[in-house]
């Protein structure tokens, strides 16, 4: 048998899997978005009807605003911000302590997500059985319905605590890969911790910053499981984000065609953000320039 034939034998199983579980669903979703399929499962093509409906859907502006607030606040405060801060601090202390604090931040990752969600429900339970209200009761303060007062804050914090660990791992690994001599040289030259961080560490982990920012934007845009468990989008759409709205449309209201159209728009939104990041981080500069040897 020729080399090429052999290669195809090895490739085929993977290609079949990719086509079955990736390509076909994507195409189906796009096709579906041009139908008004409902619980009857009929392929009823209505052209751009769904997209026109989205444009006039009175909930959409609220959902879009929620999505942007939720995504970028979580991203800035936790998934990138907090992750970066923890990495910078834990790599500036003796390694034993650094590892300890990082392990602490990893714990939420090791908790099953439903358990993790329910944990937050318990923390902010409106009765005195909830952790926060229990503590308040000990100090003689009345219980508060936190999930009603600040639902957005709660889902951001809940997502942030678990989301920060990935960035933390990547940033820490990247910082540790920076040659020690750079830091020694800087210390001998009298640079402060802040100057070292700003002029040496951050520029040298730029690529990882870009990666985590882009990756986490996409995952915050598309994931909704903790919101589903903690607030289910409520009270009254106050935490309804795009992905959750899509889920509600498709699986609570059985408007599969409308849901598909919503998810197509979400994909486009994500792509736009990814491209913006590449521009912002001057991605071209990250590509290796040719080495020139001149005398």
């Amino acid at each position: 048998m020729k080399g090429k034939g052999k290669a195809w034998i090895f490739l085929t199983p993977m290609v079949v899997l990719v086509v079955m579980f990736f390509a076909i669903p994507v195409i189906l979703t796009i096709v579906l978005s041009f139908t008004n399929m409902d619980y009857t499962f009929k392929w009823n093509f209505i052209g751009l009807g769904n997209f026109k409906d989205i444009a006039t859907d009175f909930v959409i502006p609220k959902v879009l605003l929620n999505t942007l607030i939720y995504t970028f606040t979580t991203l800035a405060l936790f998934n990138v911000g907090c992750a970066l801060l923890i990495s910078l601090l834990t790599t500036s202390m003796p390694d034993r302590w650094g590892s300890f604090f990082r392990t602490l931040w990893m714990l939420p990752r090791l908790t099953p997500s439903v358990v993790y969600g329910i944990l937050w429900l318990w923390i902010f339970d409106p009765t005195e059985h909830g952790l926060v209200n229990f503590i308040r009761a000990q100090m003689g303060m009345p219980p508060q319905d936190w999930l009603h007062q600040a639902p957005m804050v709660i889902i951001i914090v809940a997502n942030g605590f678990i989301g920060a660990s990935m960035g933390m791992l990547i940033f820490t690994a990247a910082i540790k890969a920076i040659p020690t001599d750079y830091y020694r040289a800087a210390l001998i030259d009298g640079a402060s911790w802040w100057m070292i961080t700003r002029k040496i560490t951050l520029p040298l982990i730029k690529w990882q910053l870009l990666f985590v920012t882009a990756y986490q934007t996409l995952s915050l845009l598309t994931s909704f499981e903790y919101i589903l468990i903690i607030t289910n989008g409520g009270p009254t759409f106050r935490t309804e984000v795009w992905a959750l709205y899509t889920y509600h449309m498709a699986f609570s209201n059985y408007r599969f065609g409308y849901g598909a159209a919503l998810s197509v728009i979400l994909v486009i939104l994500g792509t736009v953000f990814a491209l913006l990041y590449l521009k912002m981080f001057k991605f071209e500069d990250l590509m290796q320039k040719p080495k020139v040897e001149v005398d």
Partner: peptide
């Protein structure tokens, strides 16, 4: 002033 092996 220090000069490092890999220049740093």
């Amino acid at each position: 002033g220090m000069v490092f092996q890999n220049y740093a």
